[in-house]
Design a binder for these strands. Structure first.
Length: 271
DNA sequence: ACATTGACCTGGGAGC
DNA sequence: TGCTCCCAGGTCAATG
């Protein structure tokens, strides 16, 4: 479920409860995730204090005095702040028990997410070291993207979802930002003009920021840390709107598959 | 180096 | 009620 706005929403939701808290216990009920949860997580993180929580791409990073807890929510992960008496549900795989009585509880039916423990410079971790710039940072700008796309012979939508070009843009926001930019998702990345790429950079930033403000997109089961849904779904322009009228020109929204992912666009507005 | 595809999982909805 | 099939917000390893 989570793309950048959803992970950012979770981060903001847990911050007031989890930052500066000592980790009293970590309970792992199922290690069999996208990457096996290492025993070092409990062995080394219990007893430490969470100094800061940040996000890099779709990873949540809990910095402690002796290492970093890295968490990815995969496709179906939900991280909530719950009280200690909250009943366990199916797929509640990990609890991080905090000194203030709250628990960070990870529920992930599909288990595409994971929780890892890493010492040393976290940004040099093998999963993070080769990641492209954050889309909301100044490093992600027209000059950068023009250069990155200049030799790319793949669809622009695939390029936007490539974490070596830009991180955080997943299937929903790729469709949304291309619609706002009036660029067809099927265009070859290296066929975009400098002007088009400049618009695209602006629209990606706009869409992500607006979604963060709305608490992310809940299509099915995404939830904020307090259990409430995100409200950006009602602001989606094309995603999931197959056959419905384009909000700009009223023609039917198209639904195609690109690289095995559902893709929505308006064939009239997007060229 | 880049592009494409399969694999990892469970659950929900459509269709029969 | 129940079966089968298809789909889902991610991303890495293997293959071309």
């Amino acid at each position: 479920m989570p793309e950048l706005p959803e992970v950012e929403t979770v981060l903001r939701g847990i911050l007031p409860y989890a930052e500066k808290q000592k980790i009293l216990n970590i309970i792992v009920r199922n290690r069999n995730m996208r990457w096996t949860i290492p025993h070092s997580l409990e062995e080394e993180a219990i007893g430490t204090t969470i100094l800061a929580i940040t996000r890099r791409s779709k990873y949540l990073l809990f910095a402690t005095s002796s290492g970093t807890i890295m968490m990815h929510l995969g496709m179906s992960g939900v991280l909530s702040v719950v009280d200690s008496n909250t009943a366990l549900k199916k797929h509640d795989h990990v609890d991080i028990v905090l000194a203030n009585g709250k628990i960070l509880r990870l529920n992930d039916p599909r288990r595409f997410g994971s929780v890892l423990w890493s010492k040393g410079d976290i940004l040099q971790h093998r999963l993070l070291v080769d990641l492209a710039p954050e889309p909301l940072s100044d490093d992600f700008n027209a000059t950068y993207l023009i250069d990155k796309l200049s030799n790319r012979k793949t669809c622009i939508k695939v390029a936007l979802m490539n974490s070596k070009i830009v991180v955080g843009v997943g299937n929903i926001y790729a469709s949304e930002s291309l619609f706002k930019s009036k660029i067809s998702p099927q265009r070859l990345a290296n066929s975009l003009s400098a002007t088009e790429i400049t618009v695209l950079v602006t629209e990606i930033k706009k869409v992500l920021k607006k979604s963060i403000e709305a608490g992310g997109t809940t299509l099915k089961d995404f939830a904020q840390a307090d259990g409430k849904p995100g409200y950006f779904a009602q602001e989606l322009s094309v995603y999931g709107r197959k056959g419905l009228p384009c909000i700009v020109c009223n023609n039917d929204i198209n639904h195609i598959t690109i690289a095995n992912r559902a893709t929505y666009f308006c064939a009239t507005c997007q060229i």
